[in-house]
Nucleic acid binder design. Structure first.
Lengths: 343, 343
DNA sequence: CGCCATCGTCGAACCGGTTCGACGATGGTT
DNA sequence: AACCATCGTCGAACCGGTTCGACGATGGCG
């Protein structure tokens, strides 16, 4: 493998001159520059990443910490990851994907060893043991998801509160007065998945203000449990005319449930979900939904992270907590309830 | 950040002694060793990855090249990735996930720059432009998927031919004489996805030998197109009594199709799929299926790769092409056909 | 014509590890 | 008592880049 020394020798200049010719950080005569470039080309020179990292303290690699919990819906995660890797590459960075169960230890490892220039954390918990480590690390960090304490980090998330209110408003406006909200499984909440209760509590609050009855329950993450649960809910609340879904598995299971019950959407039941467009397409979901935009969130986190990595000015800017506003994608699954709601 | 020089000073020894004390590559007195360890502990010393990579020519990072084609079924990919990252970590390696569209360029970048000690390639095409680059690279490589030319690389894949034969055999044994096989979309084939025709051709051959009629068609990768296709197929071949599915999207769509047609499985139609257990669980698929074991394949590829990375002896061993034999997971979705097949 | 700034290049140092060769101290043989 | 191996440690070199300071050549200016 050719080193910069080989290139320099081939071009008949010193190593430093070769380096400057390639980086352009000092003026080099046109003639020498072309000789160096030609030599580099001829020898198929590629700088050694380790050596460069050692000299510059920059690796051009970002860490991405994602945890895969058994009871979570893995396909949804893929979108976030792609948003991060694609954006990182556009900005000249590679991505180290870390899925280790012990996230705190993994984070310490990659930051202390200086393998990465910055870190994106996903699956943020309310009290996340990785955050103190990330705050103390020399590299900047960005979160996809809102923790209890945002200090010292850039945070990006969907505005789940607004999403919850939006769902209730939308159905209330159509005339609905009794709704069901199915959230993620209770495990997710226990693990500190704040987005679950952020959406739910905001929806409950808004429902209270509007005089709407809202039955909020935890869901399941797997079939057939989630299908059974949906059936049980529809049985238990026969007068409810609208269903809000903050649970991918439930959304995926609903079509077969409504079909089996001979229940028509939106005539017999109005439905609004919260998931990504990609997810909707994969499962061919016929429901109006609030786009959770995982790719956009991943991209935003990376862009901010790279700004901080590359500019010392940016590094001292105040930290941001940015919520993207929920956008309702209409698929015609909501309508005014039948005058005397009956199933 | 503490360097090994800091540790050495703290312990009152030379840098080299500190290094030997930590690595154990030369005998060091118990007393000095403990002093060095204590110093390292006290200073929270972690070796700089770049410096170590430069000195040892080892990064302890593996590259994972995965491509996400629009018309492919992304959730299935997740399983392969987790198989790789988890196994790599168990063996002491981190994983650089590269999803760049231009896989050949990406591969050149990470190998030439010595960012990785080895590379796992996924989404292997019959004529894969990345393979010549990987063969020429100084790092070993492993493939998940079978290309036209396996030379110079370790290859791991499901035995799709045996899977195709197994599906046909199984239904033939039950008495079926007319079957439908729905494969991946034609795009996948055009892109060189050999597993599609490996399974199909072997199934056709076996069907011919057994005197079974087999209608083999390309599928779609998305709803609702794939649902329409399934309906059209069942309409077009009313006397077919068995359905073979080598297409995740079709498998996911089938339950609603059979339900809508009032078709019972296995009474009215026997079904066998080919997908992963994880996939089956996610979509709650009630069909017997041939386990494609993505996590196992990813793990096998990584283990072999690491063997070659870590032992010069292993590096010169002959290359392996290893097929895992298809395993049928029975879910009771196959049965003898009704005597006069009618729908 | 002499002076100074700029340009273009070079040598050397440095980043933070690992590893080789050397060397004094120790202990066991003959 | 002399000798040799082994043990434990150190200094120096090296991995392959980047970057700083220096310095000769060039050119503009007074």
């Amino acid at each position: 493998m050719a080193t910069i020394g080989d290139v320099a020798r081939e071009a008949g200049v010193s190593r430093s001159t070769a380096s400057y010719a390639l980086s352009g950080k000092r003026p080099i005569s046109q003639e020498v520059r072309l000789r160096v470039l030609a030599a580099a080309e001829a020898l198929a020179y590629t700088p050694n990443a380790g050596a460069r990292a050692l000299a510059t303290s920059r690796t051009k690699v970002l860490g991405l910490l994602a945890q895969f919990h058994e009871d979570e819906f893995a396909p949804a995660m893929m979108q976030y990851i792609l948003g991060v890797t694609d954006t990182a590459r556009d900005l000249g960075y590679d991505t180290l994907l870390v899925t280790e169960a012990d996230g705190a230890r993994a984070l310490r490892r990659i930051t202390d060893s200086r393998m990465v220039d910055g870190v994106v954390l996903m699956n943020i918990a309310q009290e996340d043991s990785r955050l103190p480590i990330l705050r103390a690390a020399p590299q900047p960090g960005a979160l996809v998801g809102l923790p209890g304490d945002c200090s010292g980090l850039d945070v990006f998330d969907l505005d789940f509160e607004e999403a919850g209110r939006g769902m209730v408003d939308h159905l209330h406006r159509l005339g609905h007065r009794e709704l069901i909200l199915i959230s993620q499984p209770e495990h997710v909440v226990e693990r500190g998945g704040a987005y679950v209760w952020r959406l739910r509590d905001a929806a409950l609050e808004r429902a209270r203000q509007l005089g709407v009855t809202l039955h909020a329950v935890y869901g399941e993450s797997r079939q057939p449990a989630v299908g059974r649960l949906l059936n049980a809910l529809l049985d238990a609340h026969p007068s409810a005319t609208g269903l809000l879904i903050n649970n991918e598995a439930a959304a995926a299971a609903l079509p077969s449930v409504t079909y089996a019950r001979g229940l028509r959407v939106p005539e017999g039941l109005s439905v609004i979900g919260r998931y990504s467009a990609e997810f909707a397409a994969t499962f061919s979901l016929p429901y109006s939904f609030i786009e959770s935009a995982p790719d956009r969130l991943g991209a935003m986190a990376v862009r901010q992270l790279v700004r901080r990595v590359e500019s010392t000015a940016a590094r001292s800017e105040p930290f941001v907590v940015r919520f993207i506003s929920p956008e309702l994608v209409s698929r015609g699954s909501t309508a005014p309830p039948k005058a005397p709601p009956a199933r």
